[in-house]
């Protein structure tokens, strides 16, 4: 398995004249929560379907747990929720999981345990069609958890959940990862990915535009300084951080420097008679990075089809 749980190489899916997924390459390592991030329609679900063997790639190749995606031996070790939960509407949540337990060769107890794990135990006897969107989503995650698979593939698992439900789901995913299971999670919610994912792949218009840790994608640290007078502050900052590391931005200065520089910077500025109004770490949110990569402004949409490996 060469230390990877999922390896995709130039994975491509073409529908008639539309390229849904274009040469996506990514790796998911054991025990990590990998976030697959992209706007709606970017190709996330199509990629996940290929990794589960539900659809055939038009090009490229992939391996999951060291074998061909969708092969029975692999699927026995994978739990998945792809593009919304698919269940028999006339069956109760519990019976739906019992049907799937039979398909997996598990006992009814496994179904009950999965139901309890997502907090649906008390409503397990109700028909699936009477569930709210959030309950349906939780049942989908319960189905994915059946049999404690080595890899969980979850497509937008917090869809339809209220804020409390989303928080519960995040806790559950972190808990799952802490138990050693690998999670491949697609989402268009940046905060979610930022909070629970070790590494992230960003996809836009079918192409993977970046892959790396959240910190990598955010880029190097920077400091924002507001001070008066600005020209003297600029001189001091350039002296400390270097001429090329300082730029004027938003009625202040932006320094490409680490937070450890702050005490010395403030001392020097005060000693030079500069009034320091504000100094703070200017950490780019994943959202800013994301929109820069996928948005219509300069820097996006991605013009280069090759993935940018930033880790």
């Amino acid at each position: 398995m060469d230390g990877t749980v999922v390896r995709a190489e130039r994975l491509t899916k073409r529908y008639a004249d539309r390229l849904a997924v274009d040469s996506v390459s990514l790796t998911v390592r054991p025990g990590e929560v990998f976030g697959f991030l992209g706007p709606n329609g970017a190709g996330k679900t199509t990629t996940l379907r290929m990794l589960l063997g539900l659809i055939r790639p038009s090009g490229g190749r992939a391996s999951v747990l060291g074998a061909r995606p969708g092969s029975p031996a692999v699927l026995a070790r994978v739990g998945a929720l792809v593009e919304g939960p698919g269940f028999y509407p006339y069956l109760s949540g519990r019976d739906n999981l019992r049907v799937l337990s039979r398909y997996r060769g598990l006992s009814d107890r496994a179904a009950d345990a999965a139901l309890d794990r997502v907090g649906l135990g008390p409503r397990g006897g109700d028909r699936f069609r009477s569930y709210s969107l959030g309950m349906k989503q939780r049942l989908g995650v319960a189905a994915a958890l059946l049999g404690d698979p080595d890899l969980l593939v979850l497509d937008e698992p917090t869809n339809g959940l209220d804020p409390a439900g989303m928080a519960d789901m995040r806790r559950l995913l972190v808990d799952v990862a802490a138990g050693g299971q690998t999670v491949l999670l697609s989402s268009h919610l940046l905060a979610e990915v930022q909070e629970i994912c070790n590494r992230v792949g960003v996809i836009a218009e079918g192409r993977l535009v970046a892959e790396g840790t959240v910190a990598d994608l955010r880029g190097a640290d920077a400091l924002l300084l507001r001070a008066h007078p600005l020209d003297r502050a600029l001189a001091v900052a350039m002296q400390l951080a270097g001429d090329d590391a300082v730029e004027v931005a938003d009625a202040g200065l932006r320094l490409d420097a680490e937070a450890s520089l702050v005490p010395r910077l403030v001392r020097e500025l005060v000693a030079d008679g500069v009034d320091v109004l504000e100094v703070r770490a200017a950490e780019r949110s994943l959202e800013e990075v994301f929109f820069q990569m996928t948005g219509p402004d300069p820097g996006g949409p991605p013009s280069a089809p090759t993935a940018q490996e930033v880790s």
Binding site: L75, A80, G86, F87
Partner: peptide, 12 residues
């Protein structure tokens, strides 16, 4: 219902 998809990701 999407149940073919669900069944086919269970292993058979």
């Amino acid at each position: 219902w999407g149940t073919w998809k669900t069944v086919l990701t269970q292993g058979p």
